[in-house]
């Protein structure tokens, strides 16, 4: 929320209150633009720490490659979050979808289209289950958490039923080529990600549906009184999110040549969105900013990898980033309600 022009004050109240206002404006400015500053600082820090390894086109490519599928998910995840729903099933749904796809496409050797269609149907079912639970009056984070446990179980079940050792190798030609397909030297997931963001941006900012999503996330009861069909929006948003997450899971599996339960890199959507100023409670946030949040986290992952930071320490840093993100959200909410 931009603060804009400070309100005119009577001369008697100038002084102390003015200084307070100024400092509040500084805090607000930092909250609004801190992410850009942090991102620039981060890049500078890594460039300084490992100039020979970090400042390479290969590094940029690695960061973009990591961001691609996660960014496609983040676009729809942000919309979900703005509508007031927190989806905690992302990693499990992505894993389940990739395993389902791998079982049908790789092991049964069915055509690509049928494997994709079956996976989409499964993810639609998962999204419907989540939204049905929410409709019963269960908060989204509990509903999606439970659905996540179920999805994780289905993923394992697919591994059990196919007698695979913890993962399914995914090397059958068409997909392998699609997942690694490049347009003028850029992996095609990158333009796909930007497309997802453009669609999301137009949807949120230039359609009635987008306005309804903001209204619903901002104040559910007021939105309901104004005739916005909350149940329908929650259903559309959650089903879309599940389907897109599933497709991203397949893309990641295609790149890694293996499908696994629980997909690495899809779990950070919440952190990225909160960094970018999307409110945890819904109703506010700009979708384009989450792209920076994502780049920030991807750069962190790749940069720490280049610096040879051990896995536990990396996990600790990621964990602290999440804690920091929710604290940021809390500060933002308190400032907004003041």
């Amino acid at each position: 929320m931009a603060s804009g022009v400070p309100p005119q004050q009577p001369a008697s109240q100038l002084g102390a209150s003015n200084r307070k206002l100024a400092s509040a404006q500084v805090v607000q400015f930092l909250l609004d633009n801190g992410l850009f500053i942090a991102f620039v600082l981060e890049v500078a820090l890594f460039a300084f720490a490992a100039p020979n390894l970090f400042l390479k086109s290969r590094t940029v490519e690695a960061i973009l490659r990591l961001s691609g599928p996660a960014g496609i998910v983040l676009a729809s995840y942000t919309i979900t979050l703005i509508s007031g729903q927190i989806d905690l099933s992302t990693a499990q749904v992505g894993g389940m979808a990739s395993l389902m796809f791998a079982a049908v496409f790789q092991l049964l050797e069915w055509p690509l289209g049928i494997a994709l269609a079956l996976t989409v149907v499964l993810t639609i079912a998962v999204g419907l289950l989540s939204s049905w639970l929410i409709q019963q009056g269960i908060p989204s984070f509990v509903s999606t958490l439970a659905v996540g446990v179920v999805s994780g179980g289905i993923g394992f079940l697919i591994i059990n039923l196919t007698n695979q050792p913890g993962m399914i190798r995914l090397v059958r030609p068409p997909l392998r080529d699609i997942a690694n397909f490049e347009v003028i030297g850029v992996p095609f997931v990158i333009p796909l990600m930007f497309l997802a963001y453009i669609v999301g941006w137009v949807l949120l900012n230039h359609t009635k549906f987008g306005a309804h999503i903001y209204a619903l996330g901002g104040n559910p009861s007021a939105a309901a009184l104004n005739g916005i069909n909350a149940v329908r929006i929650a259903r559309i948003v959650l089903v879309t999110n599940a389907v897109i997450t599933g497709l991203a899971g397949i893309l990641i599996a295609g790149r890694q040549l293996a499908a696994q339960p629980g997909v690495e890199g899809l779990g950070q959507s919440l952190t990225a969105a909160l960094f970018a100023g999307v409110a945890l409670s819904g109703g506010s946030g700009k979708i384009e900013r989450t792209l920076i949040g994502l780049l920030f986290l991807s750069t962190l992952t790749i940069g720490l990898g280049i610096l040879n930071v051990s896995a536990p320490l990396r996990q600790l840093i990621n964990g602290l980033a999440f804690v920091f993100a929710i604290l940021l959200d809390s500060i933002r909410q308190q400032l907004a309600s003041r």
Binding site: Q136, I138, S143, V149, G153, L157, I159, N160, L161
Partner: peptide, 23 residues
Amino acid sequence: VPTGIVLVVRGFALVSAVILSVL
């Protein structure tokens, strides 16, 4: 019973528990 089924059952136990609580 395969681990996968046990995990699915566990998930549905949570789902039913949540529904029961809301009901």
